[in-house]
Amino acid sequence: MPSSHHPFRRREAAAPLLLAACAGLGLLALGANAHAAESPAVSLSGSAALTSDYVWRGSSQTQGDPAVQAGFKIAHSSGVYASVWGSNVEFAPDTHASSEFDFTVGWAGKVADHWGLDVNVLHYRYPSTTVDLNWTELNGTVTWRDNYWLSLAYSNQALGSKERGLYSQVGTRFPVNDAVRFEAAVGHYFLDDVYDRSYSHGQLSAIWAVKTASNANLELRLTAHATDRNAERIFGDSLAGSRIEAAVQATF
């Protein structure tokens, strides 16, 4: 998550924080599984990923370095859910930010034939930093036929500042068969209150889904990212611009 406080970033000791987080999440998962045994209406899912670059809304969060990411989600049949997700990051040296944890509470479900809605509150948290980079965002996504979406995200603490920001994205996916699909999205981030300018970005992904013997879903993803010149002026050429991201993700 870029901010005016940290245009250049460094990862420091991310592994201990991620290991501690994974241990805590593991305990959470065991508790959720025990509860799910009593109440089938509750489900638990998770994911783990390795990516060549953590790219968020068009800009790198790791100075182009690889990232290890993991998350868990607990959902009720009513549509209410909560999730936690973590990744290493590489911010400015003076912030000492080395990891990011995202905590989400929301509701997702069908609102009409072929139409879905996901609304949530998302809190971005950066432990052990020397400056306060934490912030919260309200998100909403409308989907049609599971293949087209429009997302809006608003915060009055955009990118850890004290100012407002509004992010918008439209996207689509093109399934080729059960294993292969393409996804494309275009986003625009209104950040005039934060940086006196806004920026746009786009991305195109090719995804290959593999079913493993353990019934876990494995996805191999290759994504091309590009931003406009405003993003490069805000975040710098090393974080914005054009880049290729390769990732492998397992969901269970």
Rank of each mutant, 00 (worst) to 15 (best):
V194L: 05
V142Y: 05
G202W: 05
A34G: 04
C22Y: 05
T227G: 00
S214R: 13
G71L: 02
H123W: 13
I207Q: 04
S77K: 14
R221S: 08
S168H: 14
I207E: 01
A185L: 04
V186G: 05
S78A: 06
N88F: 03
V121M: 08
A92W: 05
V80G: 02
W149N: 02
C22S: 07
Y124H: 15
Q203P: 03
A14S: 10
S151L: 12
V84L: 07
P40N: 06
Y81T: 03
E100R: 06
V142H: 11
L222D: 02
A184V: 10
E219F: 01
P40K: 04
D196E: 14
V170K: 09
R181A: 03
G140W: 02
L122K: 12
A97E: 05
T227M: 01
L17T: 12
C22T: 07
K110W: 07
S83F: 01
T143E: 08
A184P: 01
F91Q: 00
K110F: 07
A34T: 09
H6K: 03
R221V: 08
G31A: 14
V180F: 15
S198N: 11
L30Y: 09
W149F: 15
I74N: 00
A34C: 04
R11N: 11
L218G: 03
S45G: 15
S43P: 01
D118Q: 07
S98I: 01
V84K: 00
F182N: 07
Q69F: 06
N147S: 10
F101G: 02
G31K: 08
H123F: 11
G165V: 02
